[in-house]
Design a protein around this nucleic acid. Structure first.
Length: 732
DNA sequence: CTCTAAGAGATTTTT
DNA sequence: TCTCTTAGAG
């Protein structure tokens, strides 16, 4: 069949068609706007390469950021092709690096049974380091140290890198970075960023390995390219050979992860490094109405650092964006609730409506309203399956079976459940371990004869160890959760721990459904069969790399529910109706971003992402008074509201930005919420005018001898602290 | 060891 | 306000 006549290509628009059928030996960057069929283009490209015989699965590598995206791509491709594609490398950056490290662990200078630690584990190792260090420096928080380590790794810097000295806390922090590296090496542990860094270093040091990968991968496809960090880009360049072409899809306007290292500049570098003459723009949007897109286009056009594109809708003009400014969170909740109810009465299912917010904390008030009104809803966020306490305990036992050097796991479970091994015994063990220059487990082997509690812990682990090859994997885990005492512990502990017990049994179930095909991908030594130990290692790696479903709070057992989530987690999703709440200066844009150009632009991109989630109806909502971090805050409406042209908005409340009075107070005379300026100048909530900052609201006040120290929210000009004695303020 | 009380700190999140 | 951590008492 002529590929051009194939149904695959017929359904593409002209730009998509150009991208999908771009010469297979050239690299390309596709700037795919929101809702422009990005995933479609990516999968179609792969299908096109394969079905026209220009490539075979073996020679293709496709990389995504999330497991969900990888799975989605795999299933779309497989359903379009008559043959399986297990020879194709398709996965997240982390899982692909993991695969390389397992296969070439010797070149990577890792032991075969190395374990992957997640963010939680990393933080607790860091806490242990800080606690054990003689220096008492309270100025270092574990989080700061974790950031220092991760940021440096993302730049490719080890603790001995000369570039590190540029950091202004180098002398304080770096010794701990060094200790952290030693500990990970000794305990055979690899953190998330290490997967990438170690892989990059291994490729750099092993030309043969690098060349063989470069030779294998003739086509590299990258999803969400704007989210790549420096290390990931380095990795891509290392596996790209002279005969490799890159096909990258991304949207600089949707780059919202710079806080975790994503570097949009990689898009420019890609164009430069791979001699891309003309990126292809996908501006046809299949999702939203033109009104919504007009608003999004106008908003994002204010950003200076962008490649630039304008979305066009395939849909009708649609309805105006509705904007409501309420007095309090309570009234905001009521507003959203009323609209949801009325939409639902008119036949719109709950699941097509979403409430989005900048910060998780803002879900509370809305939840309250929905809960009281008995509307089913689901809040996204919270712990994932493999991140839960009880599951992590069980996994720590399992880790110890395959990697006895893992002090971190040993410390987690040696006295959980309680077996009378207190801080003193642990300290003794640590001293012993230092003496023999070995792991805690080795110290335990020597000390167990002197301490019956240590002996009983040893017995549990060694009994389980003996059964690795005797029992089936599920039976082994089942034995583990009982022999460790975990099940008994949660059964006997007062309170309701049924859920934890359930999760432990669920862990046993997970071993049944674990995909053993994946193991073969990792341990590719076809000559022998997979050992029980390898199975465990693969299972544990998978648990870290793919932590499972989020623990969505679901108050009702309905399947039809309103969805509540942050704007970040809504990226990639779409809803008929979107409520974007808490549109206030200081919240959205976040106060942390107000002082920097880049920060503000990222907030604006976030607003762009939020806006383009809506297919048909977009509601914006702000509030005059909101409790935030325990204090009452008075805020102006978000500048982003002002950046949307007025003609696109249907104002449900007065258009001006004046302080509102609560509906409940309006009818009661004498109960005005604020005193008038005459009674008390500079009272909270008063609007003032400043010669250069313009109009603002007083949000905090501190009395001084003859004046006040005022915190004023000037909206566009940010939040300022001024002395009423000096500043030329006019009350209005 | 476990429970309680006081104190500090408080975006966004995937792997 | 709420949540997490730590210190101290029982």
């Amino acid at each position: 069949m002529n590929p051009i006549e194939s149904p695959l290509l017929q359904s593409l628009n002209p730009e998509q068609l150009v991208a999908v059928t771009y010469p297979s030996n050239q690299s390309l960057l596709v700037l795919a706007g929101a809702g422009s069929g990005k995933t479609r283009v990516l999968t179609s490209r792969i299908i096109w390469l394969l079905s026209t015989g220009q490539s075979v699965p073996q020679n293709i590598l496709a990389v995504t950021f999330t497991n969900k995206a990888a799975k989605e791509m795999r299933s779309r491709i497989e359903s379009a092709l008559p043959y399986p594609i297990q020879d194709m490398w398709l996965g997240t950056f982390h899982s692909l690096c993991h695969r390389i490290l397992r296969r070439y662990h010797e070149a990577a200078q890792l032991q075969k049974n190395f374990q992957i630690i997640d963010t939680q584990d990393q933080l607790s190792i860091i806490k242990r380091i800080l606690k054990n260090s003689a220096t008492v420096d309270n100025s270092i928080t574990p989080k700061e140290l974790a950031n220092y380590i991760n940021n440096n790794k993302e730049q490719g810097y080890r603790s001995d890198s000369p570039f590190l000295t540029a950091h202004n806390r180098y002398y304080l922090l770096n010794p701990y970075y060094e200790i952290y590296e030693q500990i990970c090496r000794r305990e055979n542990l690899v953190d998330f960023t290490e997967l990438l860094l170690r892989c990059v270093e291994t490729l750099k040091n092993n030309t043969l390995l690098q060349e063989s990968l470069q030779h294998r991968f003739q086509h590299i496809l990258v999803d969400e390219f704007q989210d790549t960090n420096d290390l990931q880009y380095q990795w891509l360049k290392l596996i790209t050979g002279n005969n490799t072409s890159i096909f990258a899809v991304g949207d600089d306007d949707q780059s919202i992860y710079s806080f975790r290292g994503a570097n949009v500049k990689n898009m420019q570098y890609l164009i430069r490094d791979f001699k891309i003459t003309q990126p292809i723009k996908l501006e046809q949007n299949y999702r939203s109405t033109q009104i919504i897109l007009d608003a999004a286009n106008e908003l994002i056009a204010r950003n200076t650092d962008r490649i630039g594109k304008t979305l066009k809708s395939t849909q009708q003009q649609g309805e105006l964006i509705k904007y409501n400014r309420a007095y309090s969170e309570l009234e905001e909740g009521q507003f959203v609730l009323d609209e949801i109810k009325s939409r639902h009465r008119n036949g719109e299912p709950y699941y097509s409506m979403a409430v989005l917010y900048r910060n998780n904390a803002q879900s509370r008030a809305i939840e309250q309203s929905l809960f009281n009104a008995n509307i089913p809803y689901k809040v996204y966020g919270g712990l994932r399956f493999y991140e839960r306490e009880e599951v992590k305990h069980a996994l720590a036992y399992l880790r110890l079976l395959v990697n006895p050097e893992d002090d971190h796991s040993l410390l987690r479970v040696i006295n959980f459940p309680n077996r009378g091994i207190g801080p003193k015994s642990i300290e003794n063990l640590q001293t012993k371990a230092q003496e023999i220059k070995g792991s805690l487990w080795h110290a335990l082997l020597q000390e167990k004869s002197k301490n019956k509690n240590l002996a009983s812990f040893y017995q549990i682990i060694s009994d389980l160890h003996k059964q690795i090859n005797q029992l089936s994997f599920p039976d082994l885990i089942n034995e583990l959760i009982h022999a460790s005492g975990l099940i008994d512990y949660y059964q006997q502990k007062k309170g309701d721990f049924q859920n934890k017990i359930y999760n432990l049994h669920e862990l046993v179930n997970a071993t049944y459904s674990f995909d053993y095909q994946d193991i073969e991908q990792i341990f590719s030594d076809q000559s022998k069969s997979i050992s029980a130990e390898e199975k465990i290692i693969a299972f544990l790696s998978n648990a870290s790399l793919e932590a499972g479903e989020r623990n969505a709070k679901n108050t009702n057992e309905h399947s039809d529910y309103v969805q509540l989530m942050t704007v970040h987690s809504a990226k990639g999703l779409e809803f008929d109706t979107v409520f974007l709440i808490a549109m206030e200066e200081g919240l959205f844009p976040s106060e942390y971003s107000l002082n920097s150009h880049d920060g503000l632009e990222e907030e604006r991109r976030l607003m762009y992402v939020a806006t383009t989630r809506a297919k048909k109806n977009l509601y914006l909502s702000s509030v005059y008074e909101r409790y935030h971090q325990g204090r009452k805050n008075l805020a102006l409406q978000s500048r982003f509201i002002n950046e949307i042209p007025e003609h696109l908005i249907h104002y449900l409340s007065p258009k001006d930005n004046t302080p509102l009075v609560s509906n409940s107070l309006q009818n009661k005379k004498n109960t005005v919420s604020f005193k008038s300026p005459k009674d008390e100048p500079y009272a909270l909530g008063i609007m003032v005018k400043h010669p250069s900052f313009g109009v603002g609201v007083i949000i905090n006040r501190q009395a001084k001898a003859h004046s006040y120290l005022l915190t004023i929210n000037f909206g566009q000009h940010g939040i300022k602290t001024l002395d009423s004695g000096f500043a030329k303020l006019e009350t209005i």
